[in-house]
Amino acid sequence: MRNIAFTFILGLLISCNSNDKRPLMGETEYQQILNASFKDATTSPLKKKDLKNFKGLDFFPVDSSFIVLSTFTKIENSPIFKMPTNTGREPFYKEYGLLNFIIKGKDFELTLYQDQDETLDEKYKDDLFLPFTDKTSGNETYGAGRYINLKTTDINPDGTFILNFNNSYNPYCAYNEKFSCPLTPRKNHLDVEIKAGVKSFKK
């Protein structure tokens, strides 16, 4: 599922060109690309009835305080495990590393994961998966958490990592139950409100 979400964003960087004269919805390029993909019936996870009335995803205002410099620590010899999903499917993942950062004066830590099927594909071998929940989950944002797509190449030579919560998005199962989505591990709950990224979808 995550491959699908990541692929449509990259694809639309190319396909959203000057041939489409309509302005794209969104405050940033990321938001515009995400909205364009949801509006396109060939890439959208929305059900037909929701796609018909789609006017754009609801985002928090972009907030630079949720773009944080984190410290990356690689987890060596991490065992492969089955990641629970909303459908009972159990894809194989491993813990790739830890991100430590500060938000609103408090220290936090999140675990980065790596889909083991993706490591077999040259196009996705550098992809990392960051699911999280926070104090907005189940209220302003999707209850099962949100995702951020990252890459191993995003890690700076000094071991730092730019983490932009404004680019967090909902899993496809937030829009359509036919999709199978990894459930956020309990250890990746942030005891703070992350008012950045995509909000809950109002059908």
Rank of each mutant, 00 (worst) to 15 (best):
49 K>C: 01
49 K>P: 06
50 D>G: 08
50 D>P: 14
51 L>M: 07
51 L>W: 08
51 L>T: 14
51 L>K: 07
53 N>S: 14
53 N>A: 10
54 F>V: 14
55 K>H: 12
55 K>A: 00
56 G>T: 14
56 G>F: 09
58 D>E: 13
60 F>Y: 15
60 F>G: 09
61 P>I: 05
62 V>P: 11
63 D>A: 10
64 S>Y: 13
64 S>L: 14
65 S>I: 10
65 S>F: 04
66 F>L: 06
66 F>C: 04
67 I>W: 03
68 V>I: 10
69 L>M: 11
69 L>H: 12
69 L>S: 12
71 T>I: 10
72 F>M: 09
73 T>I: 05
74 K>C: 00
74 K>M: 00
76 E>R: 15
77 N>L: 06
77 N>V: 10
80 I>S: 10
80 I>V: 14
81 F>H: 15
81 F>D: 13
83 M>Q: 15
83 M>K: 11
83 M>T: 01
83 M>N: 06
83 M>D: 05
83 M>S: 07
85 T>M: 02
86 N>V: 00
86 N>Y: 07
86 N>L: 02
87 T>W: 03
88 G>N: 12
89 R>E: 06
90 E>D: 04
90 E>T: 12
91 P>T: 00
92 F>D: 15
94 K>T: 00
96 Y>T: 09
96 Y>H: 14
98 L>I: 14
98 L>Y: 13
98 L>M: 12
100 N>H: 06
100 N>M: 01
102 I>G: 00
103 I>G: 05
105 G>A: 01
106 K>G: 00
107 D>H: 06
108 F>L: 11
109 E>H: 03
110 L>H: 08
110 L>R: 08
112 L>A: 02
114 Q>Y: 03
115 D>P: 11
116 Q>T: 04
116 Q>V: 02
116 Q>S: 02
117 D>Q: 14
120 L>W: 01
121 D>P: 00
122 E>R: 05
122 E>T: 06
123 K>L: 13
124 Y>M: 12
126 D>I: 03
126 D>S: 01
126 D>P: 01
126 D>W: 00
